[in-house]
Amino acid sequence: MLLRKRAWDMMHEDFATVDESASLAEAIRTLRESMKTTPQNSVVVVLKKSGSPRGILSVWELLKAVEDGVLKDEELRLTEETDWDQAFKRAGILCAREALDKHIVDDFTVLKPTDPMLVVVELIRKGKQPWALVQEGGKVIGVVHLNDIYREMTRDLV
């Protein structure tokens, strides 16, 4: 049974997307909204105007962006004079306006919907990312997460 599984059997069709011109705040907001209905979503697919993928923003990249932009802000210093609420708000506003370019992962694994399980596992392992995009006709039609592969592979083992 396992060898009959294909990428389309594991992919999620309800994934978060933003346009490549979106701000960091838009990407964060989009992923948070997506996670309300699909908690396993951990990536935002960044699309070009043509609809083809430009790259991915994972929770990891978004956290690094927030850490770099907010938590390392010069005004957030441990002094008695620091107005923490004001400094954090200012740093958050500056971070949220930031463009996505320096945070996008543009080296991502692409699967075909008909790729068999063994090919999916091999490509994800080689790509060293816990997710892959499923593309057909130049458009993203789904996202496969490492957790989905694990569930499928171990379902009949235990």
Rank of each mutant, 00 (worst) to 15 (best):
R32A: 14
D68G: 01
F15Q: 05
V46T: 04
T38C: 03
V59Y: 06
A87H: 08
W60Q: 11
F15G: 03
S50P: 02
D9L: 03
V44W: 01
E74A: 14
F15M: 06
R32T: 08
R32Y: 07
V46I: 09
G69P: 04
L71T: 02
V66R: 07
W60S: 13
K64I: 09
K48F: 07
E26N: 05
L24Y: 08
L76I: 15
A7V: 02
D68N: 09
P39T: 13
E67N: 14
R4A: 13
A25Y: 04
V45T: 04
R4L: 10
E74S: 11
T37D: 13
M11R: 09
Q86G: 11
L62K: 02
D73F: 02
E20F: 00
T30L: 05
E74Q: 12
V18G: 02
W84M: 11
V44Y: 04
I56W: 06
S34A: 15
A87S: 15
E75Q: 10
G69W: 07
S58K: 09
L24K: 08
T17L: 00
R29C: 02
T30Y: 02
V66S: 08
V70M: 08
E26H: 01
H12M: 12
A25I: 01
D14P: 00
L76M: 14
A16G: 02
H12E: 14
V70P: 04
N41R: 12
K36F: 04
K89M: 10
L47C: 03
K89N: 10
T17Q: 04
A91Q: 10
R29A: 13
L62E: 06
D68M: 08
D85I: 12
R29D: 10
K48E: 15
S52W: 03
L71A: 11
D9W: 07
K64V: 10
